[in-house]
């Protein structure tokens, strides 16, 4: 199956067109995307560092994980809401961009892992264990790949 027509359709959408036609829209949306990265990254790392036993040792893993959850969700929401229009504005470039494909395959994995695996284990755990450490390392590796590949989309053209 050839996905290129779908990417061409994405690029032809009104939103994609409007962003390409504007000098300011792309940088503004991208700035918001970066601010979302700060929020998402902070909410991810505060829990992963606790699960590794490297921060906030006076609190249980569960307390930190539950406290960060809604900020994690907000961060994900901002990223998806800003990332989608950025993609629409240059969908065909993305189609030919290996970094984009790395990002778009690891992103659902990172999301599924965050809410399907890490949340269940983290919110119930009290102390850092071998299990929480493995989960935290997997979480950091997944999100790192998504973020680094995302940044690299802009370098490879």
């Amino acid at each position: 199956m050839n996905a290129l027509p779908f990417f061409e359709w994405c690029e032809a959408t009104t939103i994609g067109q409007a962003i390409r036609d504007s000098a300011w829209l792309f940088p503004v949306i991208e700035s918001a995307h970066l601010l979302g990265l700060c929020l998402l990254g902070g909410a991810v790392l505060i829990v992963d560092l606790r699960m590794l036993g490297l921060a906030l040792g006076g609190q249980t893993v569960g307390e930190v994980a539950r406290g960060a959850r809604r900020w994690l969700m907000l961060g994900v929401g901002v990223m998806l809401l800003t990332g989608t229009p950025l993609f629409l504005s240059e969908a065909v470039k993305c189609y030919y961009n290996p970094s984009f494909w790395v990002k778009i395959t690891t992103l659902p994995l990172a999301l599924a892992f965050a809410f399907g695996v890490r949340q269940r284990i983290g919110e119930k755990a009290a102390l850092a264990s071998a299990l929480t450490r493995v989960v935290a390392l997997a979480s950091m590796a997944l999100w790192f790949t998504v973020a680094a590949a995302g940044r690299w989309i802009g370098f490879s053209s």
Binding site: L34, L37, C38, L39, L40, G41, G42, A43, V44, L45, I46, A68, W71, F144, A147, A148, R151, W152
Partner: peptide
Amino acid sequence: STHVLMLTLFVGTAVM
């Protein structure tokens, strides 16, 4: 890339 990704550790934890 390192500069940008460090935003998560630096600004992200400060935001928390």
